[in-house]
């Protein structure tokens, strides 16, 4: 059963009492909140996620609570908690959805060490994963959004989750936070995209989340191996280039980009070595979506 099949009333009851238990890729999540606006937003944005029954273990228990501040008595604030701890200071209530999503990502990045976690978008085409590792601000979420509207299957816009033993990548299709100008770019290019509310004033500017497709969520148990690693960089006015990247450089970029490379030590060294040796490595610079998509289509056609 999916979240979207719950009545609004049942959905609200779960969120305000024992928690809404949903499956997100290889992890289960329990969400609690009494904040009405967030409840409405989640009902729309989480519609395709499968519910998790009571017998299954939940990896992350998260909660968004309302609170008051003596310093800001007129501002309604919310606090994000994961397993009873608050990693962020309170933020204005309007930012609840963005804070919830960042909080879940933070919990994954901090706690998951049985998988190697690359800071990377990952999509699948022709049975293989295209990994798009990049640092914040390089446009990976926007590019990832464009790719999934052109037939690529979403694994994640944020995490490349790799089993270091088998080299399999696991999908983790979650809401994709578009930022600032990217929001309008995606609205213009892909009017069919389902976007949540625009949330101004966050640490990253204005954010609007894109809902992953139903297919990508329903197929989130289908893992795949990577075949291409492309380091993307959007640069205003730049001509398209998709150049081969030396494997040694790809290794260094990937190792320094992974959240838990040092924690996993020798296991991570072996896993990154195997990954790079089995992938085509490229560096992509682009300013125009259509050209970038054509180049990535050509790369992943074979």
């Amino acid at each position: 059963m999916n979240v979207g099949q719950l009545s609004q009333e049942t959905f609200r009851t779960l969120l305000t009492t024992s928690g809404l238990r949903v499956k997100t890729g290889p992890f289960n999540l329990s969400i609690q909140t009494r904040f009405p606006r967030l409840i409405d937003q989640l009902h729309q944005m989480y519609a395709h996620y499968a519910l998790v029954n009571e017998a299954e273990i939940v990896e992350f228990h998260v909660r968004v609570t309302s609170m008051r501040s003596i310093r800001r008595p007129l501002t309604r604030l919310i606090q994000f908690e994961v397993d009873g701890r608050s990693p962020f200071p309170p933020v204005p209530a309007e930012q609840a959805l963005a804070t919830l999503e960042w909080g879940i990502n933070l919990a994954i990045a901090m706690r998951i060490n049985h998988l190697l976690l690359f800071h990377s978008a990952a999509v699948e085409r022709n049975g293989h994963v295209l990994l798009l590792p990049a640092w914040p601000g390089s446009g990976k979420t926007t590019l990832c959004t464009a790719l999934i509207h052109r037939g690529y299957r979403l694994f994640s816009d944020e995490f490349g989750l790799m089993d270091p033993q088998s080299s399999e990548f696991f999908p983790l299709p979650r809401l994709m936070p578009l930022k600032n100008q990217s929001i309008q770019v995606i609205r213009d290019y892909f009017p069919e995209a389902v976007l949540g509310p625009e949330i101004p004033g966050t640490l990253k500017g204005t954010v609007a989340h894109m809902r992953p497709s139903q297919e990508s969520i329903e197929r989130s148990d289908e893992s795949a191996k990577a075949r291409w690693i492309v380091f993307p960089k959007w640069s205003a006015g730049a001509n398209l280039s998709l150049e081969s990247l030396p494997q040694s450089e790809a290794f260094l970029l990937l190792a320094s980009n992974a959240f838990n490379y040092e924690v996993l030590g020798e296991t991570a060294f072996g896993a990154v070595t195997s990954l790079v040796r089995n992938c085509e490595c490229r560096k992509l610079v682009y300013s125009d979506f259509d050209n970038a998509l054509k180049a990535l289509d050509a790369l992943t056609d074979g």
Binding site: P246, Q247, S248, F251, L252, A255, Y261, E262, G265, E266, F269, G270, T273
Partner: peptide
């Protein structure tokens, strides 16, 4: 040490420190 050769450049994992050297 775990040493990988990348066409004349080397990544070296040092188990004692857990560091990777290039």
């Amino acid at each position: 040490l775990k040493i990988e050769n990348w066409d004349g450049e080397y990544t070296v994992f040092q188990p004692e420190s857990g560091k990777t050297h290039f």
